[in-house]
Simulated assay, not measured.
Amino acid sequence: MNLKTSSNLETRSLLDELCNFEKGTVFDLGHPLLNRITHCFLNAAGIGAVQAVARDAYFTAIQGTGVDGSGGIPPEISSVKKNGFPGLRGETSNKSLEAMVKSAGKESLQWGLAAGMYSGLTYGLKEARGAHDWKNSAVAGAITGATLALTLEDSTHEHIMQCAITGAAISTAANLLTGIF
């Protein structure tokens, strides 16, 4: 009986750790900054992969519906389709699957890097300044937005600045709205 309770406790503690993944109990890299960056990277990477697969499923579903004369894709999103999935051209299912996996991998990496960078910057600024406020969020959002703009193929100075301003605005708004809803 004691052995059975012990195995249940071991199983329960493993399940508790997996259920409490957001608390960072599954991995410990030895420093809270590394734990936080890794945690945010993994969560956002998963979201990015799901987003890429959902977008691909949407484009696949509307491709044959004949919404307009350009192969079924509405004009307002046809440029996204052209730029988003260059490998999906109605070839064999293996090529389409390979293109989708590459796209999901790229998206998950981009989302993960953005979340990890933002989280690491806000943590570092909090430690350096001794306060967690909207200023940390604004700086971290601006740096993350500018860095993401640099990953695009045709990034201009104006585009980088626009992404930095947008990143700062979104992260500041999120910080100020925390606790309201």
Rank of each mutant, 00 (worst) to 15 (best):
A49S: 02
A114K: 09
N43F: 14
L176I: 06
R55Y: 08
F27G: 01
H132W: 13
S137N: 07
G130K: 00
H157D: 14
L152E: 11
F27V: 08
D16K: 15
S78D: 13
N35A: 01
A49D: 01
Q162R: 15
K82P: 03
T25W: 07
H39V: 02
E107T: 12
W111Y: 12
L33T: 08
G69K: 13
G145A: 05
A173I: 15
F85P: 04
A149C: 07
M161R: 10
A49W: 05
L9Y: 12
L113F: 11
T156G: 10
K23G: 15
G48P: 00
I77S: 03
L15N: 13
P86Q: 00
S155Q: 04
Q51T: 15
C19S: 11
T144Q: 02
I180Q: 08
P86I: 01
Q162A: 12
A49H: 02
L88T: 11
G90A: 10
T156Y: 06
S108P: 03
Q110V: 10
R12W: 14
K23S: 12
D154Y: 08
S13F: 08
H132K: 15
G130A: 07
L176T: 13
A173N: 10
I165N: 05
G145H: 04
A61F: 15
I47S: 08
G130C: 13
S70H: 09
Y123G: 03
K81D: 09
P32M: 05
R12D: 10
N35W: 06
V26H: 10
D56N: 04
S93H: 06
K126W: 05
F181C: 09
A138K: 04
I160L: 09
E10W: 07
F41K: 03
A104K: 12
T156A: 08
I47G: 06
N8E: 15
S79E: 07
Q51W: 13
D68N: 12
A149M: 11
A169T: 10
G124H: 06
I170A: 03
G120Q: 01
S103F: 02
T151L: 13
Q63P: 03
T25A: 09
G30S: 04
G112V: 06
T172Y: 02
T65H: 07
A140P: 00
S96F: 00
P32Q: 00
E127S: 08
N35S: 06
G71S: 06
I180N: 12
L125N: 03
A104L: 01
S137C: 09
T65V: 14
A140V: 03
T144F: 02
V80G: 01
T92W: 04
C40H: 08
Q51H: 13
R12M: 10
I170M: 06
A104S: 15
L109E: 02
S155T: 05
F41S: 05
N2A: 15
L125R: 07
E91D: 12
L33F: 08
F27L: 13
R89H: 04
K102L: 07
S155V: 08
R36S: 12
S78C: 07
N175R: 15
E127P: 00
A104V: 03
S96D: 07
D16M: 10
T11G: 02
A168M: 00
T178W: 14
I37N: 00
